[in-house]
């Protein structure tokens, strides 16, 4: 991507943020963070617990206000003192946010009423709300559950309802704050597919905060937050090739990346790096074929389902 020629949609310059601790000291979470996010990107944000990933997300939709530095969104400086209350809600309409616990973000007792909630707050015409709600339900494949009550749904379904509630507000960016962390593998899969579709088909900029490396490799760009700032920033391939740097800030790399990395480190030649199992298999099988008898290699070459 030639991002250099485009103007960033969201841009942070020297942003600092600290929480006040109980003892009255300041606990610095983000220090001089500068970051550009472009329209239509699918970004995964990685970092250890307490590294400031969620803080970063909350700064973007003005739930938190930075101590210093500027944040501009679509050319508007949201840290300027002239921001009115209406401006704040305008920012929140553009930058939607889906949280971790699916239960704690649904307000209404009926799915479609919940999806309408954001639009209702924005004062959208009733007929238009209806249209948007139906469309949002369609987008997340939950039309059949429109009249259900949230507590009848699975975690993945609830999370899709939460996503629908955000897309009904027609945002251009959605931040997922560990939205897959509390889900079972199936729910995780449903949600990740929905996120990928929003990004691909609707051109929504996605910022996905996660601990799951397999989710991170689905993104176009991976940002690692550590030491109060952006520690690594690049394509998944670039970021995950710096295995040592990731491990030094307490992060894992995808298992296959780790495998290839260790093989290389132990002197196995002719290996590149790999992000997913298929890629790793493509590199390893020829090598295996050289070292073990042909019959066994053929056995190994059979399609093995790897998750």
């Amino acid at each position: 991507m030639n991002n250099e020629q485009k103007t960033p949609y969201i841009s942070l310059r020297d942003v600092c943020f600290s929480y006040d601790t109980e003892s009255g000291e300041k606990n610095e979470v983000l220090k001089n963070v500068s970051l550009d996010i472009y329209k239509g990107e699918f970004i995964a944000v990685l970092g250890r617990n307490g590294s400031g990933k969620s803080t970063l997300a909350k700064l973007l939709n003005m739930i938190l206000v930075p101590d210093s530095g500027t944040i501009t969104i679509g050319g508007h400086d949201i840290t300027s003192p002239d921001m009115t209350e209406d401006d704040v809600y305008e920012v929140r309409r553009h930058i939607g946010m889906v949280f971790q616990n699916p239960d704690n973000q649904l307000v209404a007792t009926v799915v479609e009423e919940d999806i309408a909630f954001g639009c209702e707050n924005l004062g959208v015409e009733p007929s238009e709300i209806r249209r948007r709600v139906d469309e949002a339900l369609e987008t997340v494949n939950m039309t059949a559950f429109a009249r259900h009550s949230p507590h009848q749904l699975s975690g993945g379904q609830k999370q899709r309802v939460a996503i629908a509630g955000i897309i009904a507000m027609l945002p251009d960016t959605i931040i997922f704050d560990e939205s897959t962390a509390m889900l079972d593998p199936q729910g995780r899969d449903e949600v990740m597919q929905t996120i990928a579709r929003l990004n691909r088909d609707m051109g929504i900029t996605v910022m996905h905060i996660t601990h799951n490396m397999n989710e991170a490799i689905m993104a176009d760009r991976v940002i690692v937050i550590a030491d109060c700032g952006v520690y690594l920033d690049g394509t998944p391939r670039e970021v995950f090739s710096s295995v040592e740097r990731l491990q030094s800030v307490g992060l894992d790399v995808p298992q296959v990346t780790d495998l290839i990395y260790r093989l290389k480190k132990n002197g196995v030649k002719g290996l590149d790096d790999a992000l997913d199992p298929d890629e790793a298999a493509a590199q390893l099988l020829p090598l295996l074929a050289k070292t073990i008898p042909v019959k066994d290699a053929a056995l190994g070459a059979r399609k093995i389902p790897v998750s």
Binding site: Q105, V107, F117, P126
Partner: peptide, 26 residues
Amino acid sequence: RRADDLAVAMECRCYRGDVGRTRMTE
């Protein structure tokens, strides 16, 4: 804790009390 989470989620969905609010079902 849930109340806290919900309050933030509602703010993110532009909830500001009764100000300029419409309803889907009339």
